[in-house]
């Protein structure tokens, strides 16, 4: 019972946080909404007795990533909030409505699909059995999310993807260095024959954002 109340409170908070992240006009409020969402997901992990995952969720996402967002927002200052852009308002609303409806329909389909009743005896076909065993419905296995289990998985069954992820981190570091270093010594390599010089246009577009970011 208490578990259920906990779940619903956390779920409501997560959804509230996610909506706040998307809707907030002030980026700082958006980051705070993200924080609420992350904290409630950490709550889900706790409910599953995955204390280690909950702690990692807090340290990595809440501790590192959201704080990094805040740093960037603070560094950008007032220019981080773009002026309200009126262009294409109708189309944006229409497109948003279409995608919103599609998404809602998809969630409804998925919900219908996942609430399969327990089949009557003798009517068990392979498909429903498969569903009943599906991880979305089952309980977390014993030891799920503990340090032992994760360490074991990382260094035995999941060793190959673990190693490949080091290549991913490596390329991200090199890419960040490459793009950041590109501004050094920029004086002598400005000359680039362009067909038409792209205008630094209205606020909010990609070029304008870049132009504002780079001093």
């Amino acid at each position: 019972m208490i578990g259920q109340i906990f779940f619903y409170v956390m779920a409501a908070l997560a959804i509230f946080g996610a909506i706040a992240t998307v809707v907030a006009r002030n980026p700082i409020r958006g980051a705070m909404g993200l924080l609420v969402m992350i904290l409630s997901v950490a709550g889900f992990f706790l409910a599953l007795h995955a204390e280690f995952l909950a702690a990692i969720q807090l340290i990595v996402y809440a501790g590192a990533i959201v704080i990094l967002f805040m740093f960037v927002l603070m560094l950008l200052g007032p220019s981080a909030v773009p002026a309200h852009d009126q262009r294409g308002q109708i189309w944006r609303t229409v497109a948003g409505a279409i995608f919103g409806l599609l998404g809602a329909g998809a969630i409804w389909f998925a919900y219908k699909g996942f609430t399969v009743d327990v089949p009557a005896k003798g009517e068990v076909d392979a498909h429903t059995v498969n569903l009943a065993r599906s991880p979305a419905l089952g309980l977390a296995p014993a030891g799920y999310g503990g340090i032992d289990e994760i360490g074991h998985a990382l260094f035995t069954t999941h060793l190959v993807p673990f190693e490949i992820s080091s290549a991913l981190l490596m390329v991200a570091v090199i890419g960040a260095v490459a793009v950041a270093k590109g501004k050094k010594g920029s004086k002598d390599l400005i000359i680039y024959k362009e067909l038409d010089t792209p205008e630094i246009d209205a606020p909010g577009t990609a070029t304008a954002v870049i132009a504002e970011v780079s001093p």
Binding site: V179, G182, S186, L189, I190, Y192, E194, T207, A211
Partner: peptide, 8 residues
């Protein structure tokens, strides 16, 4: 994005 000095 390697050519950081070009907006393009």
């Amino acid at each position: 994005a390697f050519r950081r000095t070009s907006t393009r």
